[in-house]
Design a binder for these strands. Structure first.
Length: 616
DNA sequence: ATAGGGTTAG
């Protein structure tokens, strides 16, 4: 039966690697030479020269017990332990090595696992289905799912029996690369081979769908799995609850949360944390606090993730001192703040231009050895926003010697800072520098360049870049269009602006409130009030509700062109929606009323309590 | 000993 299943698998799945010869060890054949770390070379050379053959000493015994328990302080500790153990005799079995590799996976040392798998094999230890699943998982995490499939092919060829975990690992690998269709096909192959999908199989697909914005399909699959007799668990529900929260559909998330509790599936700390995050993101603080309480009451303690989410949300609201209180509370409850906690705090201070406080945290992190690449980008951003570009450059320059290589985000931050500081040339040099270091420019850095060129008034160069983007793989998105429309509007070229605005729709892109505000502002400036009003009214039809800024823009247009009736009508409408007049609108209204126009009194009567126009 | 859900920067 098993043999038949295997044969069917071999027939249904066409993996070229499954039909190669196997004279060489598994990983060498895969050409894994580039995964060799210095550690690996070190262990190999030592291994051949001197291996202890005498009976184990006490020291050996403690080394062995440490290795076998697989509880290591950090990566270096784990590698040191490995280097010791492979000099001993007899060597640990694949079971112990498997536990060791699994510990490395928990530390996200995927590349190291791949290297060491080869070392283990070269020591004469044969892999089994467990260790190979670990290896496949590591390839998948590095987005090398096809290498994972090569291992799978060898499992079959070597006569090992893949289990459901092997399949689920590969299915997850496909999902991580967004290849959901291939993942579903593979599930079908698996079923054809006689394996039944379990709750993990479904959950992997559910979370894959969620990650790629197909929450509705994920919800459908949730129902489907129940119908097929596979009960979802807390992990399945949590994946969907999190996706709903990220789509800002917190009410739906809460309803799914109740649904799982009705089914007696207990939410865990991750479920609560996702919901709290969703509520915080929408500024629903009291509900978040209540849930944190509906959580502790169920004997579920907040963990580092929960605390970090609270810290970050408070910082983003500008409430850094409240975030500091959370730090105290977490320490009191035995949860040590980590790099993420401090990075959020730093960013909070940068947001409030309290650079000294941010620098203090950065230095503290350096002192405690927990500073990371995020910390650098955050502080560089802080310096840029506070117009301290030289210090930003200096910090950027220090990164490599401290063991952190700048990534695309670090470059983008600094390039934007340089443009704003008027240092276009340096920005350009830095961009080339980034490309020569092998960082693929993404849509955001192109938008940054586009914005820099427009701000500098170099519209021709901006247009050239935009055209280049259109021809490339990296097509302009709604943000790129918005930046360009802003640029041409400010240059007074309304004809071009209108053209780009309609081209945006033609490309199937969706303008947002910023895009609308910009084009409306441009039209108003040129005195094309009717057209501006038409665009403004067209917003809702295309599913984009005007915000306070949008109202202010169109109102200012009418006020500047002395169309007071239209302006006051729109102010009334704006106030009714809970938005208020900004400083410019207020000034224009006051100006008109000082000139004897009764608009101010009219507005005072219309907007009860004078909410609409804030006059001190 | 192997699989699935949550946090920070442009």
């Amino acid at each position: 039966m098993i043999v038949t299943a295997k044969l069917r698998l071999m027939k249904t799945m066409c993996f070229a690697s499954a039909f190669r010869s196997f004279r060489f060890p598994l990983l060498r054949e895969l050409g894994m030479g580039n995964f060799q770390s210095p550690t690996l070379l070190f262990t190999c050379s030592f291994h051949s020269s001197s291996r202890a053959t005498s009976a184990h000493t006490h020291k050996d015994a403690s080394l062995i017990s440490k290795f076998n328990s697989a509880s290591f302080r950090d990566v270096d500790d784990a590698l040191a332990s490995f280097n010791h153990i492979i000099l001993m005799h007899p060597l640990p079995s694949i079971v112990e090595f498997g536990r060791f590799l699994s510990a490395l996976v928990r530390m996200k040392q995927y590349q190291t696992v791949i290297c060491l798998s080869r070392t283990i094999e070269s020591l004469g230890i044969s892999h089994n289905v467990y260790s190979l699943a670990i290896l496949i998982n590591c390839f998948c995490r590095l987005h090398l799912v096809d290498f994972g499939f090569s291992i799978f092919g060898k499992i079959l060829k070597f006569g090992l029996e893949p289990d459901i975990v092997t399949f689920n690992t590969l299915i997850n690998g496909l999902c991580l690369e967004g290849k959901i269709n291939r993942a579903v096909d593979f599930v079908n192959d698996m079923v054809a081979g006689g394996y039944q999908p379990n709750v993990c199989t479904y959950t992997v697909i559910v979370s894959g769908l969620c990650k790629f914005g197909k929450t509705n399909v994920a919800i459908w699959l949730l129902k489907e799995m129940i119908e097929r007799g596979c009960e979802p668990n807390a992990v399945t529900y949590t994946a969907i609850i999190d996706a709903l929260c990220k789509d800002k559909l917190v009410a739906e998330a809460v309803s799914l949360f109740s649904q799982m509790r009705d089914k007696r599936i207990s939410p865990n700390v991750i479920t609560y944390t996702c919901l709290i995050h969703g509520l915080c993101n929408l500024g629903k603080w009291s509900q978040a606090r209540a849930l944190l309480k509906e959580m502790v009451g169920h004997n579920i303690s907040p963990n580092i993730f929960t605390f970090n989410i609270l810290i970050d949300s408070l910082c983003k609201e500008g409430l850094v001192s409240n975030a500091q209180s959370i730090i105290k509370i977490m320490i009191q409850s035995g949860v040590e703040p980590n790099a993420v906690s401090y990075n959020s705090l730093m960013d909070g201070y940068c947001l409030r231009s309290q650079l000294d406080e941010a620098i203090q945290i950065f230095d503290l992190m350096v002192h405690n050895g927990i500073v990371d690449a995020f910390s650098y980008s955050i502080l560089i951003n802080g310096y840029c926003k506070s117009k301290r570009i030289d210090e930003a450059m200096q910090l950027f320059g220090e990164m490599p010697q401290k063991g952190f290589l700048p990534d695309t985000i670090t470059y983008t931050t600094l390039i934007q800072g340089l443009w704003n500081a008027g240092k276009a040339r340096t920005a350009h040099v830095l961009f080339n520098n980034m490309c020569s270091h092998g960082h693929q420019p993404d849509i955001i850095i192109f938008s940054t360049l586009l914005e820099g060129l427009c701000k500098q008034g170099d519209l021709d160069e901006a247009l050239t870049l935009f055209k280049a983007m259109e021809k490339s793989q990296l097509k302009p998105n709604h943000v790129s269009y918005t930046i360009l429309i802003d640029g041409v509007c400010k240059a007074g070229k309304l004809h071009d602006a209108k053209e780009f605005f309609s081209r945006l729709f033609e490309k199937g892109l969706q303008p947002n409130v910023y895009t609308y505000s910009i084009i409306i502002k441009g039209l108003c400036k040129k005195g094309l009030l009717d057209e501006a009003y038409k665009v403004f009214r067209g917003m809702e039809d295309s599913g984009c509700l005007p915000d306070g800024c949008c109202y202010n823009v169109i109102i200012q247009g009418f006020l500047r062109h002395a169309d007071v009736p239209k302006a006051s009508k729109l102010i009334e409408e704006m106030v009714g929606k809970g938005f208020s007049a900004d400083a410019t609108t207020t000034k224009l209204v006051l100006c008109l009323s000082r000139n004897g126009h009764p608009i101010l009194r009219k507005l005072r009567n219309q907007s009860k309590g004078f909410k609409g126009v804030n006059v001190k």
